[in-house]
Design a protein around this nucleic acid. Sequence first.
RNA 1: GGCCCUGUGGUCAAGCGGUUAAGACGGAGCCCUCUCAAGGCUCAAUCCCGGGUUCGAUUCCCGGCAGGGUCACCA
Length: 549
Amino acid sequence: MNLKELAKRLIPDENLLEPEEYESIYPQRELPKGAQVTRLAPSPTGFIHLGNLYSALADERCAHTTGGIFYLRIEDTDEKRKVEGAVESVIRSLKYFGIKFDEGAEIESPLNKYGPYYQRARAQIYRSFVKRLIEQGLAYPCFCTAEELDEVREKQTQSKETTGYYGVYAKCRNLSEQEIYKNLDEKKPFVIRLKSSGNIENKITFRDAIKGDITVTENDQDVVILKSDGIPTYHFAHAIDDHFMRTTLVIRGEEWLSSLPIHIELHKVLGFKQPTYAHTCSLMKMDGETKRKLSKRKDPELSLDYYRKAGYFPLAVVKYLMTVLNSNFEEWTLKNPDGDYRDFKFKIDKMGKSGALFDLDKLNDVSKTEISKLSPEACYDFLKEWVDEFGTDADRTHFKDREYILKILNLIMGTGGKKRRKDIERAEQGVRLLDYFFDDTFEPEYAYRFDGQTVAAVLDGFAKVYDPADDNPTWFSKLKEVAKAVGFAAEMSEYKANPTAFKGSVSDAAEILRIAVVGSPNSPDLCTIMGILGKERALKRLTDAKKDI
RNA sequence: GGCCCUGUGGUCAAGCGGUUAAGACGGAGCCCUCUCAAGGCUCAAUCCCGGGUUCGAUUCCCGGCAGGGUCACCA
């Protein structure tokens, strides 16, 4: 068979470059020794979730801790998956979490010398190599229809054989020259398959940067490398792109592990050196009784937008992910509480080998810790940003008074105290903490534990002596006096020593006052709260609080 | 089902043949305290099972079992 002629007929493109030429078009990168070139290679569905961020973070850290390059490549070989604006969305999402690309699709950079970064735009490159493979007799056209393939698969399943296109099932592998040209003349659609020379009896051991040694069987499937639309499959595009974009470290989900034999064979056949692979375990989620990996389809609540809406502090999400990525990161954080996570020595081989369950409690903890480290001004900015996008009209009005909010923030963050408070976990919840400082959102629940007479006595008693100029101890001693007057113990020690001798204690008096002022029995320092509200409003609340009793 | 990966408290996990089996989150309790938060202290809770190898296995080997992944002209 004249393979050269066949290749020309199958890949009729004019002006195709010779495969060898690409080696000089995309030369080896000049980078320091040990520098890693990594990439994020999403399909343009636009949907990006926590798992993608997790993976992107690993890529980004590996590149930037070694002086390497982190680039964005768009795997748009499947037309059906394309969503408008998806690429911008990916970039924007990652940027929100502080992750930036050095080069790639839609990235403005002088480094963009390895493009195009959209696979569809690289069709000529792939086709040049496919053509060469056909010439070498290492690839062939297949005219099987989807129905035929389904039929074969069904048969194989029934007879409990391995499914797929291999051995005797690779019907088109041995098509005669006449048959091929006949099909071609009839304009039958075709794909190009790899003529695999592998044998599943042979084992290959290779070293994964995360999982260590992995033994797989050789590939013997004649996989499709060029689809009938002339665009390659993932497998083929991966081999070509990561070779010519000079990727050194391919970090991808462990779901790719099973197709690794294909990639090994493809690299061999194309004469490429294999990159180092690092297969990350997937982030898992509890689904009823069992856990499963996070899914784009089933878990929309894990989209990155979800975290934005909930008002998580972006850096907190990143730091949480870092603890999952490298368990010793947490230890490092304890030693360097104020350190930049970028100073942490990220190690790919420290990554976990088993799928981690996504732990919301932990994220919440990291998030409130991060927010507690903010200055009130920075916290204001963070909350304001959330309010502008997701808050209520009332929230937006409230946030116009920056000075007032700052006063509140000083209080609920515990600024100036020895230890910061950690009241704000995320913006959505934190903004609600401000509600009782504004009359239009103050919704008290007057659930007193004492009779109306006692409550009124405490409220009236305190209203008479309250002076906003009082410092905290004075304020409290006044409260003690009021407590005493209604038959409460003024000192907690007295009360504890003999609880039955009193109707209640200062603590109870404080509770009554607190319910009146903030509408609930719990809040930060009451004296300060009353000060923020101002005398008039504070006293009005004391009066209003008696309405229902 | 075949193949591959993984298996230490509820969760994330250190550990690399001899340990009182770290730490963090969560839980319980105590202290502090005008309540809450924060903080400090304390407690409960773990090596999947069965065989080997070894003086000794959480650690090494084999076999189960369990969980996960994957078997497309999707990535």
